[in-house]
C-alpha cells in the first residue's frame, strides 16, 4: 500500500465530524453571544454613550466576560458544545489570549505569561494590523486622485 493509498484508506476509516449538529450548536451559541452584545449596546446607549462608544464598551465587556469565564474554567466547557460558536465571537479571542498565558504562569511573568499571552493574539493582531495598513494604503492612493 503506498502512502497515498494509505491516507485515502485512513480518510475513509476516520469518522467525519457531525457537521450538521455542530453547525446548529455553533449557530445557536454564537447567536446568543451576539444577542448579549446587542443587549449591552442598548444598555450602554441608555446610559448616554454614543453609538461608537457603546460598541467599544460592549466589546470590552464581552472580552472581560470571556477572560473571566476562561479563568473559572467555564469557557472551555461551553466551547466543547458550541465549537465555532464560541471561537468566532470576540469572547473566543479573549479565551485565546487568556488560555496560553494562564498555564504559562509556571514559567514566570515575563517569558511565561508575557510572551505566551500573544500565542494566538499575536497572529490576529499582526495580520489584522497588516491588512488594515494595506487597506489604508489603498484609501490613501485613492485619496490622491
Amino acid at each position: 500500500m503506498t502512502n497515498k493509498e494509505y491516507n485515502e484508506y485512513v480518510k475513509q476509516k476516520t469518522p467525519d465530524s457531525k457537521i450538521f449538529s455542530n453547525c446548529l450548536k455553533a449557530f445557536v451559541s454564537g447567536g446568543i453571544i451576539c444577542v448579549l452584545g446587542q443587549v449591552l449596546i442598548a444598555v450602554f446607549g441608555k446610559c448616554g454613550f454614543g453609538e461608537e462608544d457603546a460598541s467599544t464598551l460592549t466589546s470590552i465587556t464581552l472580552i472581560f466576560l470571556g477572560a473571566l469565564l476562561t479563568g473559572l474554567d467555564i469557557y472551555p466547557k461551553i466551547a466543547k458544545f458550541a465549537g465555532a460558536g464560541t471561537v468566532v465571537p470576540i469572547t473566543g479571542f479573549a479565551n485565546s489570549v487568556v488560555s496560553p498565558a494562564l498555564e504559562a504562569k509556571t514559567e514566570g511573568m515575563v517569558l511565561g505569561v508575557g510572551a505566551k499571552i500573544f500565542t494566538i493574539a499575536g497572529p490576529v493582531i499582526l495580520y489584522g494590523t497588516f491588512a488594515s495598513c494595506a487597506a489604508g494604503l489603498i484609501y490613501w492612493i485613492i485619496s490622491l486622485f
Binding site: G71, Y75, T86, G92, S99, L102, E103
Partner: peptide, 17 residues
C-alpha cells in the same frame, strides 16, 4: 496537552479521531 496540543483552558472542539 500543553506540549503537544492546545492550552488546557483553550476552548476548542476535539475531532472524532
Amino acid at each position: 496537552e500543553r506540549q503537544f496540543r492546545n492550552p488546557l483552558e483553550y476552548g476548542g472542539q476535539r475531532t472524532p479521531s
